[in-house]
Design a protein around this nucleic acid. Structure first.
Lengths: 328, 328
DNA sequence: CTGAAAGCGCTAACAA
DNA sequence: TTGTTAGCGCTTTCAG
């Protein structure tokens, strides 16, 4: 069933059907009624591929994430999808498995498929941004892009790092281990910088040996602590993600440490598991929903109005105090 | 840059470029070389929307899930995406928020966009399956569809329920609370049936009061236990999902119970949090990766060869023993 | 082995 | 207000 058949059924031309479909003003009321009825009867649904080819817009956008099973990315994906759905856009999901090569391949495939825009939450492969030469609107979430013409939504990571360190210090910690991603991506650097500056403000000497850079994987955290815990002297941990924080806590508990008595821990992200872990995890909460939502809104605005300037949005973070640090 | 321009550049017709692109045998070697070079030079990439319109295949499939932030669904989504990516297919993500109406809307939108197939992991709204009248291949994962022509991949849920109950009994439990989804979807019914049959086999009387049906939400589990724990007599819990199991454990620990000393708990799914929870959670593991992978493979097979019969695949489950039950 | 031409289903400029 | 027509970029007969 295509537009021509519907036109026949309604006794009008395809153009008129198209007009009705697209809400053009220039259709007589009685004609519109006829057409709508024909559509109803026939159960006709316009072919969006044909429409996309003609309009060079496909009412769909691409989302590039490193790992959809990571709750942080999944939450962002969901809120993006919410916004898109409200606006009748569809979402191509691209899961890059943290692989830069794959990321490139994906971006290319997306461009072939005529996506109207791309949201990019991916993994610090800034070189890949060369691929979109201003062809279509792009929004980067979380990890910065220094590319012209790309909108950017992120959390106040520096403030978060500062806040985490401050809280640990106020809870009595003096030797704070920072467990961070080895990748030098912007959010990570910012969290680290906040931690460093906070120590300085509180006159606590910065010890490079207390900063450990590892892959953001449970195994890496575990392996590191098993190997090093006895040689390290620390009374607090600032883990740059909750996943790392929980892996650290888990390992330390196994080793016989008490939390928060021997070691206090602060994470980052406020994933669901943080609340349900035992002991529940003090953490710096990001507004994950808002990250996605805002990103999607910025993208849609720029799709509808290409003149619109790219924007940068920084969302606040918040300390959520739970049982892995001492009350003060 | 389109096929015509490339053809010009190579000094051939668009048809020939198309032949090269699609690996047709009927192209002289030297011509092929010329064309490939022109493609290379121009950086030409075929427009997949135009191709899709022409071929009536868009090299993309739709994935319908209730909630992508649920690790179970996210893992399935990732493994599906893996398979699709290998075969150069793209994935439309549809997150229905457990809403039957939305699900309908999504399915329609997918069909408009000419997806070549649909994978359906969604929420027990079987009435929605009427929408695909055998138009395109459909695979249902996890929740059964009794529709003709739909392939089906699921885990051995009955066996899992049986296994869970058996383990608790062998660990000494006699009054086993089953906390289950109130929705009467097939996998849930099967887990419950396994539990019931196991009790029978071990001559333990079935007490209806020990089966609690609630929404699969942390809050619901917590609220229920807070209200009922003192009136209920139980020494074990079989929670029909790990999310429920962890919520139960969390609540009981708060109430002063010890796990596994006072109450032993078995979950279902083996999500990551199950291992990292404290105490770590004994659970029935599903092969989540395989669910998605197998589903995607079945779908692609049927897309490539529409004659292929729909298949049903049941994947095994496995008891993972951890600290929330006693050794025996 | 290669090219010309038609057409996938839709929209938009132009004519009537 | 409506219809006619051309064409989005591709593939595929059919001729040559």
């Amino acid at each position: 069933m295509n537009i021509k058949e519907v036109a026949c059924l309604a006794g009008v031309s395809p153009a008129t059907v198209s007009r009705v479909l697209n809400g053009s003003k220039n259709v007589r009321k009685s004609t519109r009624r006829k057409v709508l009825q024909a559509i109803e009867e026939s159960g006709y649904r316009p072919n969006q591929v044909a429409r996309g080819l003609r309009l060079r817009r496909f009412q769909s956008i691409g989302l590039v994430v490193p790992d959809i099973t990571n709750e942080f990315f999944a939450t962002i994906a969901r809120s993006i999808e919410d916004v898109l759905h409200e606006h009748n856009y569809n979402l191509f999901l691209c899961n890059t498995r943290e692989d830069g090569e794959e990321e490139r391949r994906y971006i290319k495939a997306l461009l072939d498929k005529f996506v109207d825009g791309i949201i990019f939450v991916s993994g610090g492969f800034e070189e890949n941004l060369d691929l979109f030469q201003g062809d279509i609107p792009v929004v980067a979430i979380d990890r910065r892009s220094n590319l012209e013409g790309v909108s950017f939504v992120t959390s106040a990571n520096y403030e978060g790092g500062y806040l985490a360190a401050k809280h640990l210090i106020e809870c009595g910690c003096r030797r704070i281990l920072m467990v961070r991603d080895q990748k030098q991506v912007a959010p990570m650097e910012a969290r680290w910088a906040g931690y460093v500056d906070c120590l300085k403000d509180y006159n606590i000497p910065y010890d490079e040996g207390l900063v450990v850079s590892i892959p953001v994987e449970r195994e890496a955290a575990r392996e590191y602590l098993l190997r090093m815990h006895s040689q390290l002297e620390f009374d607090g941990i600032f883990a740059a993600t909750d996943v790392l924080a929980i892996a650290c806590a888990h390992t330390l508990l196994r080793l016989g440490y008490s939390i928060p008595e021997d070691v206090q821990i602060v994470g980052f992200d406020n994933i669901t598991a943080a609340e349900y872990y035992n002991p529940s995890l003090t953490t710096i909460a990001q507004e994950k929903e808002a990250l996605g939502r805002k990103g999607a809104e910025l993208l849609l605005e720029r799709i509808e109005d290409p003149e619109k300037e790219p924007a940068t949005v920084v969302l606040p973070v918040q300390l959520i105090q739970r049982a892995s640090t001492r009350q003060y």
